[in-house]
Design a protein around this nucleic acid. Structure first.
Length: 186
DNA sequence: CAAGAGATCATCT
DNA sequence: GATGATCTCTTGA
């Protein structure tokens, strides 16, 4: 296993978003591990991105996005669902990658991972599955509670699709940015 | 099968 | 006091 370190998150945000595809998001609870293979990401970059929470300036909530790369940014949306983001970019520059979809895996007895039903296609659903909540807001992704690891899966550029972001129609000129990435075939 | 409303709360005005 | 980086269920054609 190869846990991603700080330098990975310090790459340009759009690079990180694409590199994250095919990686495994791991949340450790006691002795159990909840694992999801990342298959879709979305980026929120810079102080001018109207779709980003950070566009309204620095507030207690968005402070994390201005912070150091490699931390988790978790927030509650519509009162019921959590969204999980990875903070990227340099300090004082607000940028983050939203993990939009994963495939849920279970760790088998012999160390292999088994895919089960693909039901976590959506930011809210994946957080429900991985048991991500507000307690994980601000957690360091190089810690041993929540992290992302590389298990040798290579996603070619030709397998990466690009599309407009979702649910951000109010973002004016930023709503048509092709800042969403996903793995084409599974 | 498509469309619409409800659930529910932290954060900002 | 209004609203959103969502999802699920209900309704109706």
């Amino acid at each position: 296993m190869n846990r991603l370190n700080r330098s990975f998150y310090l790459q340009p945000t759009l690079e990180v978003a694409q590199e994250l595809l095919g990686k495994f998001l791991v949340h450790k609870i006691g002795k159990k591990k909840l694992i999801g293979k990342i298959i879709e990401t979305e980026t929120y970059i810079g102080p001018k991105d109207k779709a980003s929470h950070a566009s309204r300036g620095r507030t207690p909530r968005t402070e994390l996005m201005f912070g150091e790369a490699g931390h988790a940014y978790v927030y509650l949306i519509y009162g019921m669902y959590y969204c999980f983001n990875v903070v990227t970019g340099k300090k004082d520059y607000p940028a983050a990658v939203l993990i939009r979809a994963v495939q849920p895996f279970t760790a088998g007895e012999n160390g292999h991972f088994y895919l089960h039903k693909d039901v976590t296609n959506g930011p809210g659903k994946l957080c429900r599955y991985l048991k991500i909540d507000k307690k994980l807001n601000g957690v360091d992704l190089t810690s041993n509670v929540l992290w992302i690891e590389d298990r040798g899966i290579i996603v070619k550029k030709s397998q990466i699709g690009r599309a407009k972001r979702i649910g951000v129609d109010y973002a004016g000129e930023y709503k048509d940015k092709l800042w969403r990435f996903y793995i084409i075939s599974t």
